[in-house]
Design a binder for these strands. Structure first.
Lengths: 156, 156
DNA sequence: TGAAATAATATTGTATGCAATATAATATCC
DNA sequence: GGATATTATATTGCATACAATATTATTTCA
């Protein structure tokens, strides 16, 4: 095992690294689209959750955290910044004072109209076919699911 | 377009989000393996670069940054922490005082022996076949490459 | 040669991320 | 009904990430 490129510790052989790299790159890719909306990528994901909610029930901090896989230590200050930016409101639930209900401000609702062209724009810029894009999404979901399962098995 | 799940802004339709989620999860997955070695995932990647180097030329900050896609604002303090931990040495190049040469300490070399079981362990834990793993790696590399290309096209 | 351009790294400021811990409210159970 | 456990969120501390800027050294070229 003298050739390092043969080793399991070779960078080129890593499976995780491309996904890690992709996560960094995709945030750079989104930045110029999101910065005019005063959103970061993580905040954009929170907006996706809020925009996509049917409004039939309250969206709490925990709701968002479970959908995005964010810990409270990430989400709590992030939501405060989003409130300071005027995108969302934070309100203690009257029913259960432990819960904090997150809702869109009018500005947060309007932002949806400006944001809705972003995904199509990026998909076009990618130059990939629908089939290729579907394949990437499927593999990404598969890998994320695999990692979630591995983490859950560990804590059991 | 009344059903939010039909919209391009639906979380479920996102291609990037699974990759972003995977990057967060994989770091959680590595943590208990790397913490005993006093390494974070980003630092582990730096060690992969150093372990994999043939030693025939100097490894500079820029060398590492280009291989991992890290900006100097990330790498500079990260390498200082790694030096403080005793993993690497930082030395100005005598030939070109602008360069900082990064080299492994003896401890950093020994760490390779402890680390080399980690990839196999994680691959086993995944329960995936070699073909499935190869497919994931290929798609991860494809996506990372696609994103890199999109970013480069933009700055041109 | 010497000013301007370039290159390599460092610094600063802002925003994630997560583990560990703390706090406060609700639920449980005897 | 009150001690205990659980739940939901917040806080703290540490380590990324990156854009923008600064610093220092080298190269270029007039």
């Amino acid at each position: 095992m003298d050739d390092p490129s043969d080793s399991s510790l070779s960078l080129k052989r890593q499976i995780c690294f491309p996904f890690y790299e992709a996560a960094n790159l995709l945030q750079q890719l989104y930045r110029p689209f999101l910065a005019p909306l005063n959103l970061t990528y993580a905040q954009y994901l929170v907006m996706l959750v809020l925009w996509g909610h049917d409004g039939k029930s309250d969206v709490t901090v925990g709701t968002i955290g479970r959908q995005l896989g964010f810990e409270t230590g990430t989400l709590s200050p992030l939501l405060k910044r989003m409130e300071a930016a005027g995108h969302v409101k934070r309100m203690r639930s009257p029913d259960d004072e432990r819960r904090v209900i997150i809702s869109l401000t009018q500005q947060g609702q309007f932002l949806r109209e400006k944001a809705k062209y972003i995904p199509d724009q990026l998909l076009r810029d990618s130059g990939l076919s629908d089939a290729e894009l579907a394949g990437l999404r499927e593999k990404g979901q598969t890998f994320a699911h695999c990692l979630r399962t591995m983490l859950q098995n560990r804590s059991v």
